[in-house]
Design a binder for these strands. Structure first.
Lengths: 342, 342
DNA sequence: CTGTTAGCGCATTCAT
DNA sequence: ATGAATGCGCTAACAG
């Protein structure tokens, strides 16, 4: 595991060549006031010629500031996450922060391991998209006042910075829309129910039903257990097939996200259902492609870029705060119903 | 993870508490042979209690091995790139490598800056998706035998590791397919022509035309200048509108990528063209969504995940090589025509 | 087995 | 304006 490295030049090397002390070189490189213009430019020229590249690790070891954050998400290739990530990236670039990104695939053990690695690398803070049932690893960080912001999920109990969407409202709007369109049997296809996103959207679904006097029925909520990341489309497809085989009746489907909705639409079309004439479909997230599929997907728009951008801002504030405060910030992003043709 | 005065616990702290020397603590933590089982477990217990987290920077400063690579791409939210990235991530995780990811947005100055930052952070190697006209920054690295692998693009002149698709074949297959389907006027909508991907696909386009005895016509190649990342769809859409306004005639369009094809299809549909009856469309990349749009997109499938996975392997090989060899590796990935309904 | 010493590359004292 | 000394946290080399 040893690699040959093109040996990097050090300030000592430069110092020798320039006939000055390493310290003087350091001064020149960092544009300190206490150095003469002439030696400074001479040194800079030599440094340039020798191809000097500062060793960030040495600097960091002294300063204890890495200008790096860690980002842990379940699947950065999921369009929802990659949109959010774009916001993070933008904000981070503005503050000249580097990002170490890690894909947990929704596996708790990965998340735990990643956090440890990130701490070893002394990231200034962590942005984490909670995905699992257990939060022990996070709890530890929060307890120690380590800068962390939870993104896309709400964890009530703790005193931790969070940014997430108004999930209840989203679920409510989606369901209400279906009901007001005249749907009598509205199914919901969702993810596992151990996170605030699923729970919130489900609550919104119930709320809308209740408001319209439609009895809530447990069987109408279809849980996709253990969706492998990247297989939401398939999961939605499978659920519809399952429902059809079970001779279940429905004329409206509220999907946990757009990807599931894509699968749902595919299955419905293949089985001769017209959308929205026979069955109406509403998705969630409003990812880029939802306006490109046929029919264009009616969905709940989530402020993805903003979520990422704001998340970094919150983390940055936490990192640069003079002293660790005990009060936490919770930011709720509004959602919007985008009516298209499904 | 405990921190004393907002600082992390060091081996020195542990040593004091345990009444041993820092070195002994180091031995215990690294499972060295030369330490007694009893002191070792005693120290480990104390370390655990104190919430010790090793400082990777100190270790790296000594060892000069960061187990980190840098990845520079233009837009990680583009489905093509995020698929490739997934492959990189998978391979990197297997070797326990961290990834610092940077989005250049196709801007040379960004790329240059990023490379510098990555070098300062002493990444063991860099995976780079060349996007610009200038490669001066890369040339420097190559000259210094810094481990780098270029992904998705071919740069003939140099002696540098590369992995890319067989673009000529892809362009050829796409165009040939259109011609054999009976298209008489095949347009090509492509990106700027300063990279091997565009050039290769264009060459394939010409080759197919020539083979079928169709004269190549400059005006049939539509260049989308300066596509802002994330706006490929729009670019495709605009080009079609432009062509229609110019009263150009065409019955087949070969698109540089699937995103452009989405826009093309949208514009055609909006203007009353039937696909593929009136106009056939072929895309490139075969990203996930291409089978979900209507009509399902006929396209050239690129081995995206493999490209990323292999790219890391190549880089890893380079990083861990006993000595720097002068011969470079060039890997060409095969492409495949996926016939669907467009 | 364990402790002492030294040094990775840099920046921050303090001298001169 | 410049140099010398010190230490960030850790580990390797050498003693004991």
């Amino acid at each position: 595991m040893k690699r040959i490295q093109s040996k990097f030049v050090t300030i000592k090397d430069i110092a020798e060549k320039a006939g000055v002390s390493p310290n003087t070189v350091s001064r020149a490189l960092n544009s300190r006031p206490d150095i003469s213009q002439s030696t400074k430019s001479r040194i800079l020229k030599i440094a340039q010629e020798m191809g000097y590249v500062r060793n960030a690790y040495a600097t960091i070891l002294k300063s204890n500031v890495t200008n790096t954050i860690g980002v842990i998400m379940s699947d950065s290739s999921n369009p929802f996450f990659s949109e959010v990530f774009k916001g993070i990236d933008k904000a981070a670039q503005e503050k000249d922060y580097q990002i170490i990104i890690m894909n947990s695939e929704g596996v708790y053990e990965n998340e735990e391991r990643f956090i440890k690695t990130l701490l070893e690398r002394r990231v200034d803070g962590i942005l984490l998209f909670p995905m699992q049932e257990s939060y022990e690893d996070i709890r530890e960080l929060v307890k120690e006042h380590f800068p962390i912001v939870l993104v896309g999920r709400e964890i009530d109990e703790w005193n931790v910075d969070e940014i997430f969407s108004d999930e209840v409202k989203g679920g409510y709007m989606a369901t209400k829309y279906l009901l007001e369109k005249g749907c009598k049997k509205v199914k919901m296809i969702t993810d596992q129910l151990y996170n605030s996103a699923s729970l919130g959207r489900l609550e919104g679904y119930r709320k809308a039903l209740q408001e319209k006097g439609v009895p809530f029925c447990e069987e109408n909520v279809k849980l996709c257990h253990h969706i492998h990341e990247g297989y939401h489309v398939q999961a939605g497809y499978d659920k519809v097939i399952e429902m059809l085989q079970g001779k279940e009746e429905f004329d409206g489907i509220f999907c946990y996200n757009d990807l599931i909705a894509y699968g749902v639409i595919k299955a419905l079309k293949e089985n001769g259902f017209r959308i929205p004439e026979d069955v109406s479909v509403v998705g969630y997230d409003d990812i880029t492609f939802s306006r490109l599929i046929e029919p264009q997907l009616t969905t709940i728009k989530v402020k993805k870029f903003e979520m990422g951008y704001e998340a970094f801002q919150m983390l940055y504030k936490r990192i640069t705060a003079k002293k660790s405060s005990n009060s936490s910030t919770r930011k709720v992003l509004d959602v919007e119903l985008i009516v298209r043709n499904s």
